[in-house]
Design a protein around this nucleic acid. Structure first.
Lengths: 222, 222
DNA sequence: CAGTATTTTACGGAAATCCATAATCCTAAA
DNA sequence: TTTAGGATTATGGATTTCCGTAAAATACTG
């Protein structure tokens, strides 16, 4: 069984539940952090002491506190940990069910398993832990397994996201162009932004800009 | 202490945590339901058997399953339970932090306490239980206590919501007017809809329609 | 019933967006 | 160096939204 496990989860009641699971699996050396920053520091410290963790179970969304944080989300945490310790096994354990985000976690953040918090997720979590222990297979909860099949042949890039975020913040297209020009962002003409918007609307089957922002918000893209 | 408690919470890991809390408080007669429908039936059955529950702890958002449900959200459950058994104490225990929704839970659904799932919510939950046990006071987590102070002097009515929902679904203003005319919804002129939108934008301090939909989506109004 | 207030509807011009086409710039291969 | 292809930018007109004003309809009051 895994020797040393760390959990990143902010909700204390949820933490209690997860700890119960680990106890059931006879994992006795586990620690938990309510903050991503804290989790990252612990993982780094463990490496330095030559006693690295071999499993990270991380939530994705974390409540913001009064205290300032440098790592605000589980996505970031996972990505940074993967860079720091390429061989650690990582399980994302979250209620997030937007296929776009789940796919990105496997593709970009390099998680080994995604377990959807749900009605029977404890069994799934145990299953994921066992699979990761014995092999290099990946695990994903069946309800969201289809996320991996989705082929985004059209790549939504950073600038698309920027445009969408600005729109949802109430910035007009003209203002966005101004901002892009002032920030030296490459395509900053009226028509370039318009063309991108048009492609996005096409891709997401949105009738208009309001609809587009609504859809992408729902999908968790912005 | 409360004699008979029922928990409505879909996430199994969270359920484990809450049960731990009740155990700490020496509440031994508790049941939990993963479905709102199930919780409602149990509460009704208990009344019929003259052994009613005296406390309901309910989550707000529930995962949808393969099975069809009649009560889909905690909001509805709470409302129906309040009608059925006016004297039961109800605690909403949720990550929901939109003041609009929280205020509505106190005003319309008649909850006795709102505990925000968070970093130290277990202590708050215990506190809420104790307050409800000994008095008719209400309890609300400090982080969101400001929700109750907010006075919506401007009332957002049903038609406003309808307009916003249509907009976020990609319907143009002209189409909305058509729909209203076909459904015999009273103010159905171009300028009436425009005026309402203008007031909404004013109220929510939105720069434009995209922004307005984005804001109201974030607030959980639509 | 007359008069006032409020709501709803109508209208019109300004602004923003939508969308198609054409011109320009850039890069890489011939 | 030339040239083809793609990406970016420019232009202009159709459509939609925005916003103020005014007329019409309805409600309310003495």
């Amino acid at each position: 069984m895994f020797k040393k496990v760390i959990i990143a989860e902010d909700l204390d009641a949820m933490n209690l539940g997860i700890q119960q699971v680990l106890k059931d699996l006879n994992i006795n050396n586990s620690q938990h952090s309510k903050y991503c920053d804290d989790a990252f520091l612990k993982i780094r410290a463990a490496i330095n002491q030559n006693e690295p963790y071999d499993l990270l179970i991380s939530d994705l969304s974390f409540k913001t506190d009064h205290r300032a944080v440098t790592i605000a989300s589980g996505d970031e945490l996972v990505q940074k940990v993967r860079e720091l310790q390429p061989d650690i096994k990582i399980i994302a354990y979250s209620v997030e069910d937007k296929s776009f985000r789940i796919k990105s976690l496997f593709d970009n953040a390099g998680i080994n398993a995604f377990v959807l918090k749900g009605l029977n997720s404890i069994e799934e979590l145990k299953k994921a832990i066992n699979i990761l222990l014995n092999s290099d297979q990946k695990f994903i909860s069946p309800e969201v397994a289809s996320a991996l099949q989705e082929k985004n042949n059209y790549e939504i890039d950073d600038i698309d996201i920027k445009i969408l975020k600005h729109l949802s913040a109430g910035t007009s297209q003209d203002e966005i162009i101004e901002i892009f020009k002032n920030s030296d962002i490459k395509p900053n003409s009226k028509s370039a932004v318009e063309k991108r918007l048009s492609k996005l609307k096409d891709f997401f089957k949105a009738n208009n800009t309001v609809h587009l922002v609504s859809i992408t918000k729902d999908m968790g893209i912005i």
